[in-house]
């Protein structure tokens, strides 16, 4: 364990990067999921087709490929654009933090699309009709009736999506994000203790998963508080 001396702070900052990616990706995931679900439930055939294509492609292909495509694809496109203005430029890329967060959000967002779609369909039609009858606009109905009713239904599967999201952050080390796996690789370079260093990474991720699991349990309790039997 002595090998770990001097690396704890690096692991700490690596964990901070994991948490940051998680938060950014979570916001994007919810956004992509809501847009996808809205498109699938809309009457617009083009929107439906695009959303179906989105869920089929991103649920059916390896995560690492999506990540590599977005990182290297954006780099080659950005470089080409930059060279129009300044032919001297050799290489421009999106920072791995943003390319990575975007990629994993795109992947988990495709799962969230299906979850949100199912949850919106699970909202009793009577509630929406009642809101209409009370004179609420479409937007008001969405914000005050549909969303509060659907998130209770979406929460249990969405908890699993959050776990996928935190675990997918590890992949971003492949494109050079300085998170915990990256720290471990550096530490191994000087200490030559790969087992110890990677076990620490595993323990950190286990900690994150535990926090998310407990948070989702607490949220579920909160979401269903109206169903609790009064004591």
């Amino acid at each position: 364990m002595d090998a770990l001396d001097g690396w704890w702070d690096d692991y700490f900052w690596g964990s901070v990067v994991v948490a940051e990616v998680f938060v950014v990706a979570l916001i994007l995931t919810i956004l992509f999921g809501l847009i996808g679900a809205a498109a699938k439930l809309s009457g617009n055939r083009a929107a439906k087709a695009i959303a179906s294509g989105y869920t089929v492609v991103f649920r059916g292909t390896p995560e690492i490929l999506v990540l590599l495509l977005i990182y290297f694809g954006s780099a080659i496109t950005l470089t080409a654009i930059a060279q129009i203005f300044d032919p001297e430029i050799k290489f421009v890329d999106l920072p791995p933090f943003w390319a990575g967060s975007f990629a994993i959000a795109l992947i988990v967002g495709s799962y969230a699309t299906e979850t949100f779609r199912g949850a919106f369909l699970g909202v009793a039609p009577g509630q929406v009709e009642a809101a209409r009858a009370l004179g609420l606009s479409k937007l008001q109905t969405f914000v005050h009736v549909r969303i509060p009713a659907m998130w209770r239904l979406a929460l249990p599967p969405f908890g699993n999506h959050m776990l996928s999201l935190i675990k997918d952050t590890a992949l971003i080390a492949i494109i050079g994000l300085e998170e915990t796996l990256f720290v471990a690789a550096q530490a191994i370079g000087t200490t030559n203790k790969p087992f110890t260093m990677y076990i620490v990474v595993g323990a950190i991720y286990l900690g994150f998963s535990t926090i998310i699991t407990l948070a989702v349990m607490a949220l579920e309790k909160y979401a269903n508080r109206h169903l609790e039997i009064a004591r």
Binding site: L163, K167, D168, T169, A170, L171, A173, I174, L181, A184, I188, P194, F195, T196, M197, Y198, I199, V201, G202, Y205, L206, S209, T210
Partner: peptide, 14 residues
């Protein structure tokens, strides 16, 4: 609770 990539690295490199 841990990423499969970390499991692969623990087994192969660790």
């Amino acid at each position: 609770g841990t990423p499969i990539l970390v499991q692969i690295f623990i087994i192969y490199y660790g």
